[in-house]
């Protein structure tokens, strides 16, 4: 408990300083936010174009897809805000600057991730909330305290899955020279997580449910709200999936950190 408190205090200390320092580059903040808006609505735009020509996608209406996508946006917010330094990992490892993260008496993953807070995450948060409300209204969904609680729980689990997939992919850099394609692959796969998993069959449905569980980033958990009468049993395992995949990601991270030899002599 004392340790947890120590880490919370430390994170708040570093993060507030970091935000203060970044705010000196105000133009960058706004331009990056605009970039994030475009990135976040790209998929919706694709759906919007598609639904001009088709009535539904594998039985899902545009509003339902919008709801799933909003859920997806919200579940990647923690990844964007607190784990964005994961994208720098391969540079640190290749250039040898990763070594500095070994030298402090605190958890390495914590220390590493605390080095960056990606402020663009607020865009996804805002857009996610907005789209969720909009889609709920169109679908006639009502929210109460209980449902909000379930939403919070579901988002917590989903965000862990999203964090884990990218973390594991980024860790490839500890073993592979030029690990960008691995990261790129993970991102390409993750980009499919707002799609209904029912478009896949057999092997790929299995793959995205159990092995690379992108189904748990948005699709399965949002069934609680979209079609509560036919929630698959599997969906109740979301929290387990979240915690399990994060444990695995942490294990891979630890393995990678231990196999790092640094560059130079």
């Amino acid at each position: 408990m004392r340790t947890l408190l120590h880490y919370v205090r430390l994170y708040v200390l570093i993060a507030t300083q970091y935000v203060k320092a970044r705010m000196q580059y105000r133009a960058d903040f706004w331009i990056s936010s605009v970039g994030m808006v475009f990135t976040s609505i790209a998929t919706v735009f694709v759906f919007w174009v598609l639904f001009h020509s088709i009535p539904d996608l594998a039985g899902w209406s545009f509003d339902e897809i919008l709801f799933i996508y909003a859920f997806y946006l919200l579940s990647v917010v923690p990844l964007q805000l607190f784990f964005d330094n994961i994208w720098q990992l391969r540079f640190h490892v290749v250039e040898g600057s990763f070594i500095k993260y070994y030298l402090r008496p605190i958890n390495m993953m914590f220390y590493y991730m605390s080095d960056m807070v990606d402020l663009k995450g607020w865009v996804q948060l805002a857009l996610g909330v907005f789209m969720l409300i909009y889609a709920s209204q169109r679908l006639g969904l009502t929210w109460n305290l209980w449902r909000l609680g379930v939403l919070g729980m579901a988002l917590f689990s989903s965000s862990l899955v999203a964090i884990s997939i990218l973390t594991i992919a980024a860790c490839a850099t500890f073993w592979i020279v030029g690990s960008f394609p691995v990261m790129d692959l993970a991102l390409k796969i993750r980009d499919f997580s707002p799609y209904p998993m029912t478009i896949f069959d057999g092997f790929f449905r299995f793959l995205f449910t159990y092995l690379i569980p992108i189904g748990f980033v948005a699709f399965y958990p949002s069934q609680f709200f979209l079609r509560p009468e036919q929630v698959p049993l599997l969906t109740y395992f979301s929290p387990l999936m979240g915690i399990g995949s994060f444990a695995l990601a942490y294990f891979v991270w630890t393995k990678g950190v231990n196999s790092y030899t640094g560059t130079g002599s």
Partner: peptide, 10 residues
């Protein structure tokens, strides 16, 4: 400007 990320993503 230093914000190549935003411009490039856009």
């Amino acid at each position: 400007t230093e914000s190549i990320w935003g411009i490039s993503m856009t």
